[in-house]
């Protein structure tokens, strides 16, 4: 292994040594280590396959009409209607708040703010992206649950929006930075005011990327559990439209049911997990395949 330890290919002497000492042992090391990197990759993918497989196999027997049309009843029957309808309310509402705020924030970072201000806000936004979601949940608890004396769906909506906004904002900024400067100049040179340059030309140019960012943020929000446990709480009741009351969602449903000593309820947890997983994975795959195709189409990178 002495040849491997040569630090820098600088001198002729070292070159000679490297070339001359090309031994079977070095070739073997190369093969083994390269193989090991491949093994590591397979190793990483085993849990993905195992998990998707287990969820599918365990969930399929439990996905039936009752699961989709009834709320929790008792240990032997019932469904997840409360959670399905809850997610269908919370996620769109949170998206409705987060998408415009995030996109506007990203526009500000990329197009309007001075470089110094943009740096400060970008830093704060990055910190928010990295903040554990449970901390955001605790924040919304202190902000919305304590003052209003009760868990509520709206507190959950706000928590999800707080988690999604920075993700969308940073994505928007990066997408807008990929729009060539010549396009910006072309629009300015037509005599468009800056806000029209942004909304008419730049946002349209980056629309695919912006939608991608929103979809990924929605997928992320859809799976959030911890912040909802301490804001929207979860509920056995089917709650439609009462945003000031607790509401269940698929993630909180999975968590609640997973702790129950009942094969039926755990089966329902698997079923809910499959629905959630399908949604999240489908969103990710579609978006990645689409954007992958676009970037390989020779756009900018």
């Amino acid at each position: 292994m002495s040849a491997v330890a040569v630090p820098a290919p600088a001198t002729v002497g070292r070159v000679a040594r490297l070339v001359l000492t090309r031994t079977p042992r070095r070739t073997l090391t190369d093969r083994v280590m390269r193989g090991l990197t491949g093994v590591a990759t397979v190793f990483i993918l085993i849990p993905l396959v195992a998990l998707v497989g287990y969820v599918t196999v365990n969930a399929l027997p439990w996905i039936d009409l009752e699961f989709l049309t009834s709320g929790p009843v008792d240990f032997t029957r019932g469904g997840a209607l409360n959670a399905i309808l809850g997610s269908l309310q919370l996620i769109p509402l949170a998206t409705l708040i987060a998408a415009p705020l995030g996109i506007l924030g990203g526009v500000f970072l990329a197009e309007i703010a001075s470089p110094r201000l943009a740096n400060v806000i970008r830093f704060g936004t990055d910190v928010m992206v990295g903040l554990p979601s449970v901390v955001v949940g605790v924040f919304c608890y202190a902000l919305l649950v304590v003052p209003f004396h009760g868990y509520s769906a709206i507190a959950g909506v706000v928590a999800l929006a707080v988690i999604m906004v920075p993700i969308i904002a940073r994505n928007t900024e990066e997408i807008l930075r990929l729009v060539p400067a010549s396009v910006r100049e072309g629009a300015l040179a037509l005599g468009m005011p800056r806000w029209r340059v942004i909304l008419t030309v730049l946002v349209r140019a980056g629309l695919g990327g912006l939608v991608t960012g929103v979809v990924l943020a929605v997928a992320r929000g859809a799976g959030e559990t911890a912040p909802l446990l301490i804001t929207a709480l979860g509920s056995r009741l089917v709650n439609v439209g009462h945003l000031n009351e607790p509401m269940d969602t698929l993630p909180t449903f999975i968590y609640t049911n997973s702790g129950q000593p009942s094969p039926v309820l755990i089966g329902q947890a698997w079923a809910a997990a499959l629905i959630l997983l399908l949604f999240v994975l489908a969103a990710n795959i579609v978006v990645r395949v689409l954007t992958g195709r676009r970037s390989s189409g020779g756009n900018n990178r």
């Binding site: 396009v183 040179a189 005599g191």
Partner: peptide
């Protein structure tokens, strides 16, 4: 902004607006 409406410009590299049709480029 008003000056640029009266003094138009064509750039070195063609820069049609992306994701816009031929019609929309001219109509924008």
């Amino acid at each position: 902004v008003q000056v640029r409406r009266i003094v138009g410009m064509v750039f070195q590299k063609p820069n049609p607006f992306p994701a816009m049709s031929i019609f929309d480029n001219v109509a924008s």
